[in-house]
Design a binder for these strands. Structure first.
Length: 619
RNA sequence: GGCUCUGUAGCUCAACUGGAUAGAGCACCUCACUACGGAUGAGGAGGUUUGGGGUUCGAAUCCCUACAGGGUCACCA
């Protein structure tokens, strides 16, 4: 099972892409080329591409884009500020996108021309899916997420897992990858037999239909019942003088579970039928929760289908001599050369462990999807060791795509009162939380009275979009690698850096656009008008969006998208305050602002969709 | 203990991957207000980036070290 919640690891800095030029706005590409040419004509030498650093000019200085001249000073043979001055003068002369410049120490601040802004914005307006690269322009990747334990209902940790995996899949797709979304269902093993045994002994034939209980909750109930009975028996046995270890192994109910696992592996039809039935209940329950979460999968893998395959590969490895066996017949891999320990791959009795199954699943997936470039496992950071071992084992087996696997590790979700522990009843149930978010959104909406004319169905729909959006945003705005604090109170807060704040402002944009009914694709304005600071900030937020998407895709990090959307909408919020649009009399300025308004709405909408968050038309 | 990740405002998080005076949101304080949608706007205060050393034009970011915290080291998944 992979459900547990947890943190980070290697992610940083080891990008397989690394072609800086490909993830750069048209503006920066053009500036880079101009700088290279200008530098060459001035100093008779051509800098390397990596030496050209262009960044956003800080607020307190005049300008839009800043060239960092320090790295170039040596090559130019001039002090940084002198080189900057010379470059600035030459750039204004040679590049029609540069209006003026300002030198502060070794920083060359460039002010872009209206023509530059207009051309860039027009390009964005012409693109119906701004921020999305050509579909299929990049490789085929697989993203695994969710992968729950069939004995336990989904909880807050799964929400982070699912939202993260689903969002990363969306972002990769937007970056031009072909994406396959999968999960592995750990439907085999002793843990499954535990709830089956408990249900047989204490269930009295209870079904989801008879009890009205959601299937996953019902099975979870019997898993807990098993645990309780097991503890009770252990206590009894220890009071008779057995050691705790012996008592745990010898409790009658655990023996029954073991016997059942034996029968399951033998294919006993009675056991297999019950197994199918109870798993069916769980899947129905999960399906309902996934629907509420808004996540989907292209294919499901079941451990019961892949563990035999895993055993086969382990035996092959044994035959090849890359693994070794001990006297009791257990099979091991020696990873001491890689700085790790020895690791069990197959038990002495020949049954599979967690690792066995994962070996089979990994290889099977690359066979199922020819041309698959890589596979991404969205799993908590507590399993970093497991994936390190898995990838090493695949390499030892000589599997060609062994290095095409990546563990997208994420941090634990903590509660203000500490960690979630099922034993202590401090688990936040996914269904409960989603419901609470919806009802809070509904209350706020009703209180404000802006949706008085909505039908009941529309009100519920809005509450879902806003409530679930708030939750998704709260979990995704934090960089995946970090452990995060989930504070129920502030997650329902609809002010500040939250989805509802963003949604509200997009609704304002849409409201303006609705009232004006213009053809956006034919918007244009004069090159002579001046764009002020806020307008330029808005424009840059829109223009740089595709770049942000690529960054997020390379880093497998939706928080880049979330923060960008928030920054952009915050600027819009200020802009909206004192920049009239429909009331603006100058038609050029009006068109330019209208374009900014429309582009802000569409950019943020695309970004939020990548996070799995919907935008209402009214709220 | 070994390996690994993390440490930034009172709290929750950023920081364009080594760039300028480290930024936001909560919370706190002061103002504004018949609104292209008030779920509002403007401003203030809050920091020796855990401590110490090093690398260089330049460090929250890279290296070493100390301290603090998380994770992991199963014939569990």
């Amino acid at each position: 099972m992979r459900w547990r919640l947890c943190a980070l690891h290697d992610g940083r800095g080891s990008s397989p892409f690394a072609n800086r030029h490909s993830s750069m706005t048209t503006i920066d590409q053009r500036l880079t080329d101009a700088v290279l040419d200008t530098f060459e004509s001035l100093f008779d030498k051509r800098p390397a591409l990596a030496q050209i650093q262009i960044q956003t000019t800080r607020q307190e200085f005049e300008g839009d884009r800043t060239l960092v001249v320090f790295p170039l000073a040596g090559l130019a043979g001039k002090p940084p500020h002198v080189a900057a001055q010379m470059l600035g003068e030459a750039l204004v002369e040679s590049c029609d996108w540069v209006d003026s410049f300002d030198v502060v120490k070794g920083f060359l601040n460039l002010t872009l021309s209206t023509a530059c802004w207009k051309e860039s914005l027009t390009q964005a307006l012409a693109s119906p899916s701004w921020g999305h690269a050509q579909p299929g322009s990049r490789s085929k990747v697989m993203v695994e997420y969710s992968s729950p334990n069939t004995n336990k209902p989904l909880h807050l940790g799964h929400l982070r897992n699912n939202f993260l995996g689903f969002s990363v899949a969306n972002i990769l797709e937007a970056a031009g990858h072909e994406v396959v979304k999968v999960q592995i269902i750990n439907d085999r093993g002793i843990h499954i037999c535990k709830s089956m045994v408990a249900w047989l002994k204490m269930g009295n034939g209870e079904t989801p239909e008879s009890s009205g209980l959601k299937g996953d909750k019902l099975v979870g109930k019997y898993y807990v019942a098993f645990d309780k009975q097991h503890k009770h028996e252990v206590l009894e046995l220890t009071s008779q003088g057995l050691s705790t270890q012996d008592a745990e192994a010898q409790s009658p109910i655990l023996r029954e579970a073991r016997a059942m696992l034996q029968r399951w592996e033998e294919g006993d039809s009675e056991v297999v039928d019950l197994w199918r039935t109870m798993n069916g209940w769980v899947y129905d329950g999960f399906e309902e929760t996934y629907r509420a979460m808004g996540v989907t999968f292209d294919k499901l893998y079941y451990e019961s289908d892949t563990y035999l395959l895993g055993k086969k590969y382990v035996e092959e490895g044994l035959a090849k001599g890359v693994f070794h066996s001990k006297e009791d017949g257990s099979v091991w891999v020696d990873l001491t050369e890689d700085g790790l320990d020895q690791k069990l791959l197959l038990r002495g009795d020949g049954t599979a462990v967690y690792m066995t199954q994962d070996i089979g699943t990994a290889i099977l997936r690359f066979e199922d999807y020819p041309g698959l470039d890589r596979q991404i496992y969205t799993v908590g950071n507590e399993q970093e060791y497991h994936f390190k071992v898995l990838f090493l084992v695949l390499a030892k087996l000589g599997f060609a795509q062994a290095d095409r696997n990546h563990h997208l590790s994420y941090g634990m979700v903590e509660l203000p009162e500490g960690k979630m522990k099922s034993r202590e009843g401090t688990v936040v149930d996914a269904d409960d939380l989603l419901l609470e978010m919806r009802s809070t959104a509904r209350d706020i909406s009703d209180e404000l009275g802006k949706t008085a004319d909505f039908s009941e169905q529309e009100k519920e729909e809005l509450a879902r979009q806003v409530g679930h959006g708030a939750l998704k945003y709260f979990l995704l705005k934090v960089s995946p690698g970090k452990s995060m604090m989930f504070d129920p109170k502030s997650s329902i807060d609809f002010f500040g850096n939250t989805a509802p704040f963003i949604q509200f402002n997009v609704v304002r944009c849409k409201s303006i656009l609705r009232s004006l009914e213009v053809d956006l694709s034919s918007l244009t304005w004069s090159d002579t008008i001046h764009m002020d600071s806020l307008e330029r900030q808005l424009a840059w937020g829109v223009i740089s969006f595709p770049d942000i998407v690529l960054e997020a895709a390379e880093a497998y990090d939706p928080s880049h998208i979330a923060n960008h959307c928030y920054d952009l909408i915050k600027v819009f919020s200020s802009f909206y305050q004192d920049h009239p649009i429909s009331k603006e009399e100058n038609p050029d300025i009006r068109s330019m602002r209208l374009a900014l308004c429309a582009l802000t709405a569409s950019t943020v909408t695309h970004g939020m969709h990548m996070l799995g968050i919907e935008l209402p038309d009214r709220m």
